[in-house]
Design a protein around this nucleic acid. Structure first.
Length: 220
DNA sequence: AAGGAGTTCAACCGCGAACTA
DNA sequence: TTAGTTCGCGGTTGAACTCCT
C-alpha cells in the first residue's frame, strides 16, 4: 500500500487564496525552489508539497506567459505532438513561458477539436478514414502516450539529461514517417547542462534526422 | 431572465522514476 | 541490494464560466 504524499488532515485543498500564493512566492523568493515536501511547513502553508510545486510551476513562476496561444505556438504544439505524443512537459519545454498543464489543456480544449473538425485524427495526425473511437479517453490511439508510455514501442522519456545521454532516441515506424514528412521542419535541439557537455564529447551524437533538421531538446 | 448544455482550466490523483540511507 | 522517500509527469475531475434556447 502506497503511503500518501502528505498528511491528508490539516491540508487545504482546492483553489489557492491570494494569501497562500503570496506566502509561497515570498518563501521561494528568499529560499528558492527545491525540497517541495518541506516547503509547506517552512512557508506556513497548509498544503502538500505537491500542491505547492504545481501552483508555483504552473501559475506563480515569474516567467510564465499567460493568455491566448499564438498561431505559431499552436502550430508548434501540433508538430511536437505528432512527434512526441502526449509528452506535455517536453512540448511545453519548447514553448517559452508555457507550462505542461497549459499546453495539455489547450490541446484538449482547442487543438484536438480543431483537428477533428479538419478531418484529422488528433491521435495519429493523419486524416481519419473511420474514426472508430470517438470517446476522448478511449480515443488515445496506438501512437499516443497511453500506448507509448505504458505499452511497447515506446519512445524513451528522459527524466534527466544524464539519462538522455545513456539512450539513443528511437522512433516507431509511424513516428519516423512523421519526422520524414517534408511538411515538418522542427528545430529541436539537444540541450544539455554545460557540465555534461564535456563528458559527452567522446560519446556518439544522438540519433537525428538530418533531412528534416530534427533534433530533440531534452533539457529537462 | 432562467436554466440546461457545453467549454475551460486550475487542481488533484496515482504511477513510475530517481534518489537516498 | 533493497526499501523507503521524494519528485515529476500525464490523466482526470469538477467548479466556474459562457453560450444557447
Amino acid at each position: 500500500m502506497r503511503k500518501p504524499c502528505c498528511d491528508k488532515e490539516n491540508i487545504n485543498k482546492g483553489a489557492w487564496s491570494k494569501q497562500e500564493d503570496q506566502k509561497l512566492i515570498d518563501y521561494i523568493r528568499v529560499h528558492g525552489e527545491g525540497c517541495w515536501r518541506s516547503i509547506p511547513k517552512a512557508a506556513g502553508l497548509h498544503r502538500c508539497g505537491k500542491s505547492c510545486r504545481l501552483r508555483w510551476l504552473n501559475y506563480l513562476r515569474p516567467d510564465i506567459k499567460r493568455g491566448i496561444f499564438a498561431e505559431d505556438e499552436e502550430d508548434l504544439i501540433i508538430k511536437l505532438h505528432a512527434l512526441l505524443g502526449n509528452r506535455w512537459s517536453l512540448i511545453a519545454g519548447r514553448l517559452p513561458g508555457r507550462t505542461d498543464n497549459e499546453v495539455k489543456n489547450y490541446w484538449n480544449s482547442h487543438i484536438r477539436r480543431k483537428l477533428i473538425k479538419m478531418g484529422i485524427d488528433p491521435n495519429n495526425h493523419k486524416p481519419h478514414q473511420s474514426f472508430s473511437r470517438p470517446h476522448a479517453s478511449s480515443a488515445e490511439g496506438a501512437s499516443t502516450s497511453e500506448s507509448m508510455n505504458k505499452g511497447h514501442n515506446k519512445v524513451p522519456i528522459f527524466k534527466s539529461p544524464l539519462a538522455a545521454t545513456h539512450h539513443r532516441i528511437s522512433f516507431t515506424e509511424q513516428e519516423s514517417a512523421i519526422i520524414s514528412s517534408p511538411s515538418l521542419n522542427l528545430d529541436l535541439t539537444i540541450a544539455l547542462p554545460s557540465s555534461l557537455i564535456g563528458a559527452l564529447e567522446e560519446d556518439t551524437p544522438v540519433q537525428n534526422s538530418e533531412s528534416t533538421n530534427t533534433q530533440i531538446d531534452l533539457n529537462c
